[in-house]
Amino acid sequence: MRPHSAAEAAMLLAATAALVLGVRAGAAQSAAPSAADRGGPQSEPLRIITYTREHCGELSRRADELMQRRPRVTPESVELRDEGKRLCAEGQIRPGIIRLRRAIMLLRAPAP
């Protein structure tokens, strides 16, 4: 290999490597959490405390109240409420909560 070709190949490799490292570092930096999340004061994640049976019960109560207040309810909202209650009772708290919230959103929506 001639010296110029070798130099060009070396430049190409160096430029590619620099670019890869630079973009990788940039992407990692932009996705990183704040100082509080890098092993500082917040060493452990903060919990979302709504994934509990109590919150399931609260959402069920709100859904029931909304159903009683509305003259007509859609079968879908009833089905979501019942499914949410069942899942919460079976210990699947988060899926149950999500269904109850959907039922509440449907019941809050204006009547057609």
Binding site: P33, S34, P41, Q42, L46, R47, I48, I49, Y51
Partner: peptide, 24 residues
């Protein structure tokens, strides 16, 4: 709210922060 407590090391005044959270 649904967060267990105010995050340590985060001042309550006006700011933006990224937090690690445990969602279920």
């Amino acid at each position: 709210g649904n967060l267990e407590r105010w995050p340590r090391g985060v001042a309550p005044d006006f700011d933006w922060t990224n937090l690690r959270i445990d969602r279920g």
